[in-house]
């Protein structure tokens, strides 16, 4: 079972990891300790691998800092479910292989609730047996998740996502 971490709308990258706690300012090793350090100080202590973040719209708005989703990945976050994501955050999280799903479950799931995320059927199952379907990802996104990251995808296929086999990127 995974625990639900419930957040509101417009969770910005300064809430996920404030700029002052960037690895650039401190160290790479300390990064996971700084996830939600001010917005939700108990998060980094209590989060368990596989837990999921359920949030309102525009999750991850703000900076291009990849260390924001990286901190969540190092904390073991299994997926983030929100009605919409800021575009750079979406891209960074995808590149790091964190599954993102566009769905609004903030009204139906509780903070701290135990759920199971079924990545075969793309469905969230609650402790009471209630099921909430998620939209299956496009093929290229699923391929990145399967590879583990965009870097791993590039190493496996020798091309960038969206590049057709044999296509030399428009040149």
């Amino acid at each position: 079972m995974a625990r639900v971490w419930l957040f509101g709308e417009d969770v910005d990258t300064d809430q996920i990891v404030p700029g002052r706690y960037a690895p650039y300012m401190t160290s790479e090793e300390e990064l996971p300790k700084h996830a939600f350090i001010e917005a939700r100080p108990e998060f980094a202590r209590e989060v368990r691998p596989g837990d999921i973040i359920v949030a309102g719209a525009n999750f991850g708005c703000g900076s291009s800092r990849e260390y924001a989703p990286k901190a969540l990945k190092l904390c073991g976050i299994g997926a983030i479910i929100a009605p919409s994501f800021a575009r750079i955050f979406f891209r960074n999280a995808l590149n790091l292989g964190i599954p993102l799903f566009e769905a609004d479950l903030t009204g139906v799931l509780r903070d701290g609730q135990e759920v199971t995320l079924d990545m075969e059927r793309y469905v969230v199952v609650t402790d009471a047996g209630q099921e909430y379907p998620l939209k299956p990802p496009p093929d290229f996104v699923r391929e990145i998740w399967e590879a583990g990251s965009t870097v791993a995808y590039f190493r496996r296929y020798g091309r960038l996502p969206g590049q057709r086999t044999g296509e030399q990127g428009g040149e």
Binding site: S64, R65, E66, Y67, I88, R91, N95, S149, V151
Partner: peptide, 10 residues
């Protein structure tokens, strides 16, 4: 267009 470290590295 702004991007993160992985995209710029690629």
């Amino acid at each position: 267009c702004g991007m993160g470290a992985t995209d710029i590295a690629l």
